[in-house]
Design a protein around this nucleic acid. Structure first.
Lengths: 149, 149
DNA sequence: ATGATTAAGGTCAAAGATGGTCAAAGTCAG
DNA sequence: CTGACTTTGACCATCTTTGACCTTAATCAT
């Protein structure tokens, strides 16, 4: 298990236990996991993005803090939010994050999740060039989501 | 026995023992079989495709891994998966692999298997140019599968 | 008040750890 | 011999970990 995953796991647990929003200290986390403080930033920027369903706020200086919150919205609101978030291009990793998040939020069913995962996979779109794939992914997913809402 | 076959055999065994999904390390496999790492990729791309009934996910970087999973789905889901996997062209070997897999999975009957094998064979399509044959094979099989589901 | 000090958190690039790609060379059946 | 499949290796891409250096906020001494 990677240290980043352990840290992420800890944060998820904290957010869950704190009812959707945890107040954390970067230096304390770093000490607890015996890593450099910047690793906490790494974990936050790679695993707690809006695409993953989280927001992060922080303040520096004395009494500084990091607050990680889970985004929660109604189905249609989340769908439209996601649609608006998707730009003209969407890479495979982002698509996976979005689908996972929507599935966990109960916005799409298991079947919809699996089917869309396939449709948006690199393999399914491999007939197109890399750049075109991202464009296709964006338009396909947007259309599907609008259809769903 | 080819090295690639030994590796494939090892992976199949691992997937089976791990209940349908094995977590592997490319470098470790390469070391175990005393081959270059890229040979592992060769084995995966030639013997663990969706057509063969497997999916492969991987991640690079520290803590990277390769996960090989056997696809197990309901009839319709498997059919749609196959349909989505088929591109604009489909060569005879792939078609055979698909048909064999679907037959073994009980998705198509013995009769359907035999009939489709004939229809999609090089011979049956020999009236068309080589390239066109692959395109035909893809469109024919896709339409048949959609019909079936 | 205000400048210095202290206490957070942020950025970024380098180093490390894996896996991926592609084309050349080798092998083997027909 | 030829075409298809296999084996290799050089070079590439991506993810993680670490550390030097930067920014911001609160507090303290004068």
């Amino acid at each position: 298990m990677l240290i980043s995953d352990l840290i992420a796991q800890y944060i998820v647990k904290a957010v869950t236990e704190e009812n959707g929003s945890a107040l954390l200290s970067r230096s304390e986390l770093a000490e607890r996991f015996r890593c450099v403080p910047s690793q906490i930033n790494y974990v936050l920027t790679t695993r707690f993005t809006p695409e993953h369903g989280y927001t992060v706020e922080s303040r520096r200086g004395g009494g500084g803090y990091i607050r990680v919150s889970r985004i929660r919205m109604t189905r249609d609101c989340l769908i439209m939010h996601v649609v608006n978030t998707i730009g003209e291009e969407l890479d495979a990793a982002s698509a996976t994050a979005i689908l996972t998040n929507m599935h966990q939020a109960g916005v799409i069913t298991e079947d919809e999740y699996r089917l869309l995962s396939v449709v948006l996979s690199e393999q399914a779109l491999s007939a197109a060039d890399r750049n075109l794939r991202d464009v296709l992914r964006a338009s396909i997913l947007k259309r599907c989501l609008i259809q769903l809402s």
